[in-house]
Design a binder for these strands. Sequence first.
DNA 1: GCCAACGTTGGC
DNA 2: GCCAACGTTGGC
Length: 156
Amino acid sequence: MADRRYWLFKSEPTEYSFSDLLAEQDQTAEWDGIRNYQVRNMMRDEMKVGDGVLFYHSSAAPMAVIGTAQIVKEAYPDSTAWAPGDKHFDPKSTPDNPVWLMVDIQAGKTFSRPVTLQEIKAHPALQNMMLARRGMRLSIQPVAKEEWDELARLGG
DNA sequence: GCCAACGTTGGC
DNA sequence: GCCAACGTTGGC
């Protein structure tokens, strides 16, 4: 796929871990709860089936990329926005006029070792990743093909 | 627990 | 439309 894009998805493993994804039926999950317009727009406008995903554990020990996944369903309305009592409930979004979107991802490879944030920051070819830069808090971030290739190599 | 770096909200 | 106050994220 010539125009395949690459992404990094952050998740706190105490909320949702890569192991949780592996335990899902078909190892596939809805990536719901995104409530940031910049991330929503990337999902809506740029994310395609087949795109690569680096699965990153934040606020964890270790903070690291620990596996890959791929997009298996493109952006569609996030129904948790109008689920009463849901953690991500947002009255702005309704079934008739959905504001928030989600995608589905399926687990790919489990890395043979975690590639830590520390290592990424120290790596000449990776230290320009958004993840390694100060103040870049987007929960989904674009990744360059070269970065994807190098991380996949390091994670073996 | 701290706090920098954001994004969002709401008064004006 | 401006911008101060507030809330959140997430590494440290």
